[in-house]
Amino acid sequence: MPATSRSYASYVAVGDSFTEGMCDDLLPDGHYRGWADRVASALAGEHPDGEFRYANLAVRGKLIGQIHDEQLAPAAAMGAELVTLAGGLNDVLRPGCDIDRVERLLGRCATDLRASGATVVLFTSTDPTRRMAGGARLLPTILRMKAFVQELGAREGIAVVDLFSAPCFDDRRLWAEDRLHLSPEGHRRVAEGVLEALGRPAAFDWRAPLPPVAPPGRAERLRADARWLGTHLGPWIGRRLTGRSSGDGRPPKRAELLPYS
């Protein structure tokens, strides 16, 4: 259910590359900004006293089991008033995904974080079928996850940002060149969706389609596909075959709940 509008003095973001902010604008410290930082910035603006605190424990490539084992306890211990939780899509992208286990662990994370006193925000996945090759294969599992997340969202203190039902995410301009992570415009829209779920008045319609543009020509599409295959898909497959992850050995970008301005 939508969260009742209230002031939040502390916020912890939990998840994988989606929440880490991959492919948004780079910050001076070399980290990506991301929608969670954008949400933190907006909430910090409601606290001119400088008392707002923010942590981002998300690390790219993490599976739901790793999010549960590595991020859940630290996030709950921080006692933040608000927690965003996104995870499970990396599992769904892998062949042989154990969706029962994904739902069990995601549900446990949401329940434990809610028990810590936090308002919890969850997300449905976007619909991959109209922009991603092979997306139809993933759709049944993504629809099952969507239904599960919406069931969790019916509980008091848990809100859901429904990205699946926002057709603007069919537009490739909301996605980075790797076709897996959001572009800066995509991050801006997700941040607005979170703020709306928290009861903030809309600054713009984050679901609205982008202005139409002429589609790329065949030669441009072929060049883009070849670049994607060599630069992004090939290395991704290589990591899967060798059991490696892009997040191996990478610490969270904001591991402590500290003042944010």
Rank of each mutant, 00 (worst) to 15 (best):
P211D: 08
P211L: 13
P211S: 09
P211T: 12
P212H: 09
P212S: 11
V213Q: 11
V213A: 13
A214Y: 00
A214W: 01
P215H: 09
P215D: 03
P215W: 08
P216W: 05
P216M: 12
P216L: 13
P216K: 12
G217W: 09
G217V: 14
R218K: 14
R218L: 15
A219Q: 15
E220T: 15
E220P: 02
R221L: 15
R221S: 10
L222W: 10
L222E: 14
R223T: 15
R223A: 15
A224K: 04
A224S: 12
A224F: 01
A224Y: 02
A224H: 03
D225L: 15
D225P: 00
D225M: 14
A226W: 06
A226T: 10
R227P: 00
R227A: 15
W228V: 05
W228D: 03
W228P: 01
W228I: 05
W228S: 03
W228N: 04
L229H: 05
L229G: 05
L229V: 13
L229I: 12
G230Q: 05
G230E: 05
G230T: 05
G230I: 01
T231H: 07
T231W: 02
T231N: 11
T231K: 13
T231E: 13
T231Y: 00
H232K: 01
H232L: 01
H232P: 00
L233K: 04
L233H: 00
L233E: 02
L233A: 11
L233R: 04
G234P: 00
G234I: 02
G234W: 03
G234E: 01
P235G: 03
P235T: 02
P235I: 02
P235C: 04
P235L: 04
W236D: 04
W236C: 03
W236A: 14
W236S: 11
I237S: 02
I237W: 07
G238I: 05
G238L: 09
R239Q: 11
R239G: 03
R240E: 11
L241E: 01
L241H: 00
L241G: 04
T242S: 14
T242W: 03
G243L: 08
G243N: 06
G243R: 09
R244H: 10
S245Y: 01
S245D: 02
S245T: 13
S245W: 01
S246N: 07
S246A: 11
S246T: 07
S246I: 12
S246C: 07
G247M: 08
D248M: 09
D248W: 10
G249C: 06
G249R: 09
G249P: 02
R250E: 13
P251W: 12
